[in-house]
Design a protein around this nucleic acid. Sequence first.
DNA 1: CTGAAAGCGCTAACAG
DNA 2: CTGTTAGCGCTTTCAG
Lengths: 335, 335
Amino acid sequence: MVTIYDIAKECNCSSATVSKVFNNVGNISENKRREVLAAAQRMGYVPNVTARNLVKRRSNMVGVLLYVDESLGLRHELFAEILNRFRTEMEKSGYEILLISEKADQWEGKLLDHCRALRLDGVFCLCCDYEAAAVQELLTSEIPVVGFESPYPKKPSIESKNFEAGRRLTEYLIQNGHREIVFIAGKDVPITRDRIAGYRAALDENGIPFEEGRLLHAGYYSNDHGRNATQMLLNCGKSFTAVMYPDDFTAIAAYRDLAAAGLYVGKNISVTGFDGVSIGSMVSPRLTTIRQDAACIGVRAAELLIGLIDGSGIKEGMERLDFTLVPGESVYRLD
Amino acid sequence: MVTIYDIAKECNCSSATVSKVFNNVGNISENKRREVLAAAQRMGYVPNVTARNLVKRRSNMVGVLLYVDESLGLRHELFAEILNRFRTEMEKSGYEILLISEKADQWEGKLLDHCRALRLDGVFCLCCDYEAAAVQELLTSEIPVVGFESPYPKKPSIESKNFEAGRRLTEYLIQNGHREIVFIAGKDVPITRDRIAGYRAALDENGIPFEEGRLLHAGYYSNDHGRNATQMLLNCGKSFTAVMYPDDFTAIAAYRDLAAAGLYVGKNISVTGFDGVSIGSMVSPRLTTIRQDAACIGVRAAELLIGLIDGSGIKEGMERLDFTLVPGESVYRLD
DNA sequence: CTGAAAGCGCTAACAG
DNA sequence: CTGTTAGCGCTTTCAG
């Protein structure tokens, strides 16, 4: 591998001069500049970022924390898309993206040290278990971190306006004549509570009494394709004409199970999802859902992280992003 | 940041001794060993991998080349899953995973230099345009590379047994009484040609004449949700009772469009997909498809790459992996 | 405008 | 068993 010393020798100058040329610093005569650049080109010089990073004491690399899971993490289009936008945004600022697995048990408090050892400039907690000790250690460390749907308020984080989303979706159902609305909520995390609060607010605002029995609890993106969720629904002992599922996949999977019980989505049962994954508009009936703005989330996460790294941005606080209600055919008008 | 020198001072020994302790090399007395470890612990020492990498002349990092695309890349469950398995496998051997975007136009021949500058130990071309000059440059370079569905024979690569898959799927339709089978093939790349060859072989073997008009060409995972593919189908001027779509998403999206034309999947039209994404078994009718073994692909890619890096593995050649025919309800029996 | 020199933090012979 | 020494390749004062 050719180094700046090789080039220096070739150009009868010092390595310092060569270095300056590549970094556009100091005053280098246009002649020397050209000469060095030409030599570098000719000799096939490739800078060694490792060496540069060592002296600069930074890696120009940010980590993205992601579950290793059968049904979650990258496999979910929402996260994949957020990551997509995040990385293109980070790349614009010259950062590399390193994948970090959250293998909760294996880290044993080593997650933070791992990030430190790599001298990561920052970390984006995209999809992780915020309850895990290793993750909390990271969140409370000196490392710049931004989170998605993070419950930790001392670092910048992003999420959709889940309260409003829950309310908007419920309202939409009510506007379509539904009053017996079951909400199958996801895992009990802050965003879920927000959505539930929104659901209740909408009921309240429309004079519909909240029934404990119509609020069910399931997981998100359950491995059983939401079968349990639907099972719970059918056994809930309450009448209902509409069901809000915790996420699109669970909702779509429910089409089948509901039909098996004589409930035909969009005909005699209304169903909604959450997230707005692309498959929702491909299936029949098209799924009515809340589309989270993945692009915006990814970009904003990048902006926040960069701001945090260079100290120019906000230091903490939650930022709630807008969403879109996507009307589909899975909600029928009940008159 | 505390360095090995700080620890050395604390323990009245040299940095070399400390280094040896952390690397488990040389002969260090158990006493010194414990002392160093204790001091490191107490002082909060975290090794600097950058420095280590500089002297070791390697990064312990491999890149994963991925499109930045609306509908492809990470957003596709198959690739996401392959990446998932790949990274867990690579992590077992201590490698970090770096995401590399294939922004074809932007690299302008800089992809290879980018990898070199980062001193990547290897690259996995998971989802990229093998026609792109930048990618070809990488494939023909000195950098260890393994590809997925790569056409380049001089580096190890993996793909499913596409010829057999195409044949098997066609056979399955024939076994179900279909003889007028349209194959909407994906983008014209080697694996597509293999599938087509398999399709033709199955027809041949069953005495069914191949009709040019029943072989259509579309893209994979088209952005229009496969609308064009189905449009082509309806306009192909040939009779048909079964359609093989290029991938699951396109197939699932077709359910709607076919129904709009009076063709009800699993009733009076048979449809198949390709890949075996999870949504295929959630929709109704369940999609009959070829499931690619994503787990195996990811793991094998990791093994091949590691073997290539440390010189212990094969240097080139294609490896074709087994697949599974997943019978669904989207194929009806034609008697 | 250019260069000498001192590191960044760690590893790897080679002596002792 | 431990330490000395010489780098890895690059950046960055500080003189000149």
